[in-house]
Simulated scan of single mutants.
Amino acid sequence: MIGDYTYDQFFSILAMQGFAGLILFSVFVLMALGLAIIFGQMGVINMAHGEFMILGAYVTWGVSLFVTSFAPALFPIYFFIAMALAFCASFTLGVFVEWAMIRHLYRRPLDTLLATWGLSLILQQTYRSVFGAREVGVSLPDWLMGSLPLTDIIEVPINGLFLMALTTIIATAVALLMYKSRWGKQVRAVTQNRVMAGAVGIDTKRVDRMTFGLGCGIAGIAGSAFTMIGSTGPTAGQLYIVDTFLVVVFGGAGSLIGTIASAFAISQAQSTMEFFLSGSMAKVLTLLTVVGILMLRPQGLFTLKIRR
């Protein structure tokens, strides 16, 4: 016996909480990937990142309503259409925001933080005015419903498995884009030495704009995925923005491997402790542990050599 649980019950609880942690890990990775790209390459603290996520969620909800009403034959595959449209909507808004506001605030981190925080409030009110204050949810196709029994006690939801598979595909695609493509080489060149990158003919302003748009587009995909595990409201993005920044800073700004490792560690710790403690206490203990580690290693788990 372990407390009030038998050994079988205790290890089954750990397994189910571990799987719940993997679902939370998937959301953290999708959110933090875009933020790590933006913060690591441009040094922009984007406090409106959660609102780009919610834009993707609302696009998915809109596509769900449209397909249900006008094209029911597409319902089994509408989620893939919705994710593509969510990426396009968040990417387009991100490119516009970079052109209209962010490009005027480079190398002014405090001003950028305040400006994007103001943008987040504007977007929240816009969503509230357009979509209403009530939370909304999407209808999932039948193939995403239900669960798979692993043992007599442990069952895993199918939408959670799909979310983890989606995260794996997106993370792999981003890694290939950043480390294997010509554009990715330009991004890394600008990150490591902006002046030299400009001197050899790289359009650093265009790289910044497309990078910001890509980060926001990935947040849109995260919002689309988020609709599978929770409802969407105008302020829902703020529930994840602190955890997302924590993941990025703990993993090391600009490091994709660090972001993934940090998201895994934080999500598993929170999920496991939430069962035995309250949710707020689990967050407090996780935050204290991360702060303690950052005091010993302020650069995060993984670092990039950057010449400023």
Rank of each mutant, 00 (worst) to 15 (best):
R182G: 06
C216I: 00
V174T: 04
M178K: 00
V190I: 10
K180M: 05
V190G: 01
D203F: 06
A199P: 00
D203Y: 05
T168C: 13
V174K: 00
N193K: 03
M196L: 15
R188P: 01
N193S: 09
A199N: 13
V200A: 08
G201T: 11
M196R: 07
A171P: 04
G198F: 09
N193Q: 12
G198V: 07
W183T: 03
C216W: 00
G215L: 03
I202Q: 12
M196G: 07
A197E: 07
V200Y: 10
W183M: 08
W183R: 03
K205D: 15
M178H: 03
T211M: 06
I202N: 11
T172E: 01
I170V: 15
R188L: 11
F212C: 06
V190Y: 02
Q192M: 14
A173C: 11
L177H: 00
I170Q: 02
L214S: 02
R182A: 13
D208N: 15
A173N: 05
A189G: 15
V187Y: 00
L214Y: 04
M196S: 13
K185G: 13
G198P: 07
K205V: 14
D203M: 06
W183Q: 04
K185N: 12
V195K: 14
A175L: 04
K180A: 07
I202S: 12
R182E: 12
L177M: 15
R182N: 11
K185D: 08
Q186S: 15
T168Q: 02
R209I: 13
L176H: 08
T191C: 09
V195E: 15
T204Q: 05
A197Q: 07
K205Y: 10
I169H: 00
F212V: 06
K185T: 09
L176R: 11
V174H: 01
R206M: 15
R188K: 14
L177W: 12
L176V: 12
T204S: 10
D208A: 15
S181M: 06
C216R: 01
Y179I: 01
M178T: 10
D203L: 04
G201Y: 10
V207R: 04
T211Q: 03
V174S: 00
G213F: 04
R209T: 14
R206F: 10
A175F: 14
N193F: 03
M178P: 01
M196E: 05
A189N: 08
K180S: 09
T172P: 02
V207C: 06
R188G: 03
C216P: 01
C216D: 00
V207F: 06
L176K: 12
N193E: 12
T168W: 08
A173V: 14
A197K: 05
I169G: 03
N193H: 10
I170H: 03
M196N: 05
F212G: 04
A173T: 09
M196H: 06
V200N: 07
V174D: 00
